[in-house]
Simulated assay, not measured.
Amino acid sequence: MTAPSPGLPEAVVRDAREFGEYARTGGWAFALKVARSVRPGGQPAGETPKVSAKRFAELAGCSPERVMRYYKAWDMAADDALVPHLEALVPGEDIELPDADVWLSYYNSRNSASSVRGTAIAAAAEAEGIRPTKALEIAENPTALRAAILADPSTAQAARAALLDRLKEDPALQTELARDIARTDELKKAVATETQVAGRIGYVRQIVENGQVRTPAGQTIEASAELRDEAERHLSLIDELDDDEEAGQWAAEAYGAVKDLVVQSVEADPELRLQERRTKFYSSLQKATKVFQELTFDDVDDLDTIYEDDMVQRLEELQQAIATCVTALRRAAPAQP
């Protein structure tokens, strides 16, 4: 032991020595005090004088549960022949202690360790190749976890990846997260942007993988060789982007390029161009029909409560436009034999 420097207060020297002992042994120094002085349930007659965990906790000013966690840690280490067995120790006896770095492998300061939650966390930690005590420590200190996520991008990325994995098997969490996004304007905008990007990439990917494409009017047609080659070229550029690179601009360019080629393909084929016009007309007609059908007076007791001159004028104009359209279509109908 290093001799104290002359003139130093004895209290300072004692604190330094006790600190050095703890730095070398960690929790083992406290576990020894429990292991050599406690026997759960008290001391049977004729045995070495020890006290119950409850009595030891009263003397120490802590909880019996905390005392027993130290007791169990020592007992597990004894099973591994790392320290002497509990009954081999007597109060006041000092022994050589293990290094501090193995203490957490045996000690668990969390009551949840033996719970269903604690067991699940420990199993997940082992699957990830880390000590269960480390995962349990983090799980029981969410404030520290939050601080690390807020301060460190790499921690935030790890949390994001873990959360995504958890979402796959947790419908309740999916609902909660979706609700949080819906209530946060910034996240709603980000989701809308990413949804648009994903939709554009999906449009291009479908051309490459299925050889088909949807026209502006909604037809599904076979993609030409030129169109497939262009789609594949853009898709390969997108797939080669790093995870931290934004795909928005690349997706917009790819989508724009293939859409232009689709339009050109439609215009270059008279039959396809005619079918596109017919499909577009039917689509517009169906939308107009649906909108008009939603106009109803069923829930209005007195029409005069909703009457406006403009309503009549608009309906009359609509009636005239429909009549003109019907007349034009009848003239275009094939002559009956």
Rank of each mutant, 00 (worst) to 15 (best):
F19Q: 15
A328C: 04
M1T: 01
E230P: 02
L136P: 01
Q286V: 03
W74K: 09
A158F: 00
E137I: 06
Q157S: 06
A148E: 13
L241S: 00
R330M: 04
V67N: 09
S112L: 12
M1A: 04
E176N: 08
D243N: 00
V291T: 10
A335P: 02
A151H: 11
R233I: 06
E230F: 00
F292W: 01
I207G: 03
A57S: 10
E128R: 10
A161T: 08
P49Y: 05
E18P: 08
A60S: 07
Q206G: 14
I306P: 02
Q249V: 11
R205I: 03
V197R: 07
A127K: 15
A120N: 10
E253D: 14
Y107G: 05
A35Y: 06
A182E: 13
E10L: 12
R160M: 03
I181Y: 04
T133R: 05
R55S: 13
Y255A: 14
S37L: 01
Q249P: 01
L261I: 15
F19N: 15
R166K: 04
D165M: 09
H234C: 06
S109I: 09
P9Q: 08
N108V: 06
S283W: 00
T143W: 00
T215Y: 04
I95E: 06
T327W: 06
M1G: 08
A172I: 14
T279M: 02
E137N: 15
L329K: 07
T195W: 00
V90D: 02
S112C: 09
Y107H: 10
P270S: 06
L164M: 07
G26T: 10
L97R: 09
R39S: 05
A333Y: 02
I138S: 15
S114V: 06
T327I: 08
R179E: 15
E308L: 12
T289S: 11
A225E: 13
D80M: 07
I221Q: 04
C62G: 09
D309L: 02
